[in-house]
Amino acid sequence: MIQTFFNFDIIVASWPIVMAGLLNTVLLSLIVVPLGLFGGLLLALLASIRHPLVRWPLMAWVDFFRAFPPLVLLILLFAGLPFAGLDLGGFACVAIAFFLNTGAYYGEIFRAGIESIPAGQVEAARSTGLGRLQALGYIVLPQAVRNVMPDLLSNTLEVVKLTSLGSVVAVPELLYQARQAQSLTYNPTPIVVAAIIYFLMLWPLVRLLSRLENRALAGRR
């Protein structure tokens, strides 16, 4: 049993391959998370413009990308774009797909946060001469982000997990590399190692999230 699922020799042999995958997963996360946060913030700021010409297209955009399965979106980009003369490669396709998908999710979170701040605070800020963006930057966003921190973190957790979708379009991230090692060694041990690495990487985030959620609950009491 241990020989099959946790074979020490195979761990040693596949270690460099799996580590290269881990590095790419971290890199991918470091690109995809800020990109999604940026896209989300942009969407949320646009949503604060109440004009119908902004509002309806924005709502359609967000709904569309929240309803569209990210894996389908990714494969569509990867397999479809070359026919439009755009061969971006797997890595760029993952970045774009995540920007569209998680940006829509982050956007809804930021929007909820921004709407949780009473309008009176902005009026007070404006009455002292602060501009619209200053009021947003000094008054609204710091509180909004704090109010939705658990949701932001929870979404980030999902995003990091979803980077494993990159394996489908040959991005050599952790899962892809582990599968490579598995097929080279005819042994599932590298997949087990990858699973353990995912867990060890995300568990601290999960703990942090639980603590934030408990604190938010305590604060509400």
């Binding site: 009176g120 007070a124 800020a125 002292t128």
Partner: peptide, 17 residues
């Protein structure tokens, strides 16, 4: 924004940050 510095305003609900 410049003009508003000369006009202070106090609100019913305080509206502190």
């Amino acid at each position: 924004n410049h003009a508003r510095q000369r006009i202070g305003m106090v609100f019913q609900s305080f509206n502190l940050y």
